[in-house]
Amino acid sequence: MIKKAKGKSSTIDWEVADVNKLPYENNVFEGVTCTLAIHHFNELLPAFKEVFRVLDKGRFVIFTSSPEQMKNYWLKEYFPDAIEKIC
Rank of each mutant, 00 (worst) to 15 (best):
N20C: 05
H40Q: 02
K3Q: 07
P80I: 09
N72S: 13
I62E: 07
N72V: 03
Y73N: 04
S65L: 10
Q69R: 06
F41Y: 10
K85Y: 04
G31I: 13
Y24H: 14
V61I: 11
S9Q: 06
I12S: 10
I86Q: 01
H40C: 10
V51E: 10
L36D: 02
V19E: 06
S65T: 04
F79A: 13
T64N: 15
M1T: 15
K21M: 00
K57W: 10
Y73G: 04
E84M: 05
K57M: 02
K71N: 05
T33V: 13
I38G: 05
D13Y: 05
K57V: 01
V61P: 00
T11I: 06
D81A: 02
T33A: 11
M1S: 15
A17Q: 12
N42K: 13
N26P: 05
S9M: 07
K57C: 05
K3C: 14
E68T: 01
F60W: 00
Y24W: 10
H39D: 09
K3P: 09
Y24T: 05
P67R: 00
D56P: 04
E43F: 13
Q69K: 03
E43K: 09
F52M: 15
K21E: 01
L36T: 09
E30S: 12
F29D: 11
I83A: 06
T35Y: 07
E43V: 01
G7Y: 07
N42V: 15
E15C: 11
D18A: 07
N20R: 11
K4M: 14
H39C: 14
F29T: 08
E84T: 12
V28P: 00
S9I: 02
I2N: 10
A17L: 11
K71R: 08
K21D: 01
A82R: 08
K8V: 11
D18K: 08
I86A: 01
F60K: 03
M1C: 08
W74G: 01
W14T: 14
N42I: 14
T11G: 08
D81V: 11
D13E: 11
K4W: 09
N20A: 09
K6N: 15
L36G: 00
S10E: 11
N26E: 09
K21H: 08
D56E: 11
F41T: 00
N20S: 10
Y24E: 04
H39L: 06
I83K: 00
W14M: 13
T35I: 12
L36E: 10
H39V: 13
A37I: 13
K76F: 01
F63Y: 07
S65F: 09
I86R: 07
F63G: 14
V28M: 14
V19I: 15
K49G: 01
F79H: 05
G7M: 07
F29N: 12
A82P: 03
I12D: 06
F41L: 03
L45Q: 13
W74N: 05
C34M: 07
V61F: 00
V28K: 12
I62L: 14
L55E: 04
M70Q: 03
E68A: 06
K6M: 14
N27K: 15
F29R: 09
I83R: 01
H39T: 05
K71G: 05
T11A: 10
D13F: 03
F60L: 15
L22G: 04
E50D: 06
T33L: 07
C87P: 02
C87M: 10
S66Y: 07
P46T: 02
E77Y: 15
Y78S: 04
R59W: 03
